Simulated scan of single mutants.
Amino acid sequence: MAQIRWLGLDDAFPNPFYEEDPDPSVPGLIAVSEKIYPGQLSAAYQLGIFPWYSDNQPVLWWSPDPRMVLMPQNFKCSDSLKKSIRHFCNDSHSQIVVDSDFGAVVRACATSKRKEQDGTWITHEIMEAYTQLHEQGHAHSIAVIEQNQLIGGLYCVSFGGMVFGESMFSRQTDASKLALAALCAWCQQHQVAMIDCQQETQHLSSLGAAPISREAFLRQMQISLNQTNIDITWDFGKDILNHWL
């Protein structure tokens, strides 16, 4: 049995497209590192690898099989969510803001309690690494604002025509769903074929996400990464939600 690779500053990731999981007892765990080194996060995403770990752990790098994905056109916009969208769009004090305060959205995701998790995987190191990715133009936030208050949102990673969903939060009913509905509408308008959701949860399934094999995910990811014909501008407001009405 191969050992899980411990990565140093200049070490490359194993490519999950060609290499099997090193330890079958920990499926999907590709590599481990002491910290997130400069450039490592960018390299990982373009191989379909992401970090997921807790404080006081080394950085654990994952490429699960199967992989949870959401095809934007498959987003389930329920009747109750459509009602929330109408109310939100008709409220003059509500808005959706893209990339205005990335740090606030990430911090809100980190501090939100979740039914399916104890604590958070969004450590201070994660916040710093994704903020750097945001400054490079590869991480984005969608904030749902009401009465000048942040009530929900999400952040994601983007390379080429590929979008990797990271985390979302909600302080009011349907607030995170509004952010995801906006993202899915934007993705459809920009020929983004797939949103990576990483791991399967009941909540994501209820919104239209579904698992596919790692091989299928990596094949589509490579196509999306190489979509140089896509003119992607991360700038939209709440009017994009009319896509679902």
Rank of each mutant, 00 (worst) to 15 (best):
Y155D: 06
I212M: 08
A185M: 06
L9T: 11
I122W: 06
D91S: 10
V192L: 10
L178G: 02
S33T: 03
K238Y: 14
C197I: 14
E116S: 15
Q227F: 04
S100A: 12
E34T: 13
P64D: 02
F13W: 13
A216S: 10
F169M: 07
L9I: 13
E20K: 12
S78T: 14
N242D: 05
F88P: 12
V192T: 09
L180W: 05
Q95S: 15
I145H: 05
I36A: 04
W6A: 07
D118S: 09
T131F: 00
G161L: 10
A193C: 01
D231E: 11
Y155R: 12
R219M: 00
A104H: 03
V26K: 14
A31D: 07
Y37F: 15
H93E: 12
E146V: 15
E128G: 02
T123F: 04
N229H: 15
L7T: 05
Q147G: 11
P58L: 08
I122N: 09
G152M: 06
T233P: 03
W52L: 14
N15L: 03
W61F: 14
S92N: 07
F13Y: 15
E166N: 08
W61A: 12
W6T: 10
F75W: 07
Q198F: 05
P27V: 13
V163C: 01
P72W: 01
D101L: 11
N15K: 02
S54F: 07
A143K: 12
R171N: 08
M194F: 00
V144I: 15
D55L: 12
L70N: 08
